[in-house]
Amino acid sequence: MFKKFSPSSDVSGQTSLKSSVQRSIRSGILSQWKVDPETFEQIWPKKESLTLVKCREHISVYTLHGEPLFFQHFDGPFYPTLRLLHKYPFVLPKVGVDRGAIRFLLAGAHMMCPGMTSKGGYLPPADAALPAGTPVAIQAEGKEHAVGIGLTKLGTEEMKKVNKGVGVETVTYIGDDFWALKTL
């Protein structure tokens, strides 16, 4: 989504949000992410007001004091930015890819099932299976921090069964244009 992104041509406008909209965003995130309100208070204090940065292809980035916090595609789920995810790694469920896949991931490729079902990869066990269309943090084998954020295209159980093709669609990754952008 963010492989190519330049603020000068892709941002169409910035507006500060109505407090009612902010309230719905806050409750939306609290229900979608695995984060409790107290911790979230640190990320986004109640008093602070978010700015909505509208970008091409219906991407909305929400910033606090110019720093992107999370983003959204259409009315889809909220994704944290990678830097935020690094600080609070528990907000999203995790999947892992093996070492061989890191290189491709850092070039913006989607994550294929075999990379996650192999020995170095990680998929949640059957009792914590994720359905398709869940935002996930993509961890890498032998690494501590997440390397990217993705959206599951198949359920995790399905991935294990099919073991072929795209399993997780990469949304943003370390080193893409959105990563390079520290402030908006």
Binding site: V35, D36, E38, Q42, H86, F90, K94, P124, A128
Partner: peptide, 18 residues
């Protein structure tokens, strides 16, 4: 989601990443 630590009512401090 079983692998993440249980969230307590206390604030969880952010992880410092270098």
């Amino acid at each position: 989601m079983a692998d993440t630590e249980p969230t307590s009512s206390a604030q969880i401090q952010p992880v410092e990443v270098l």
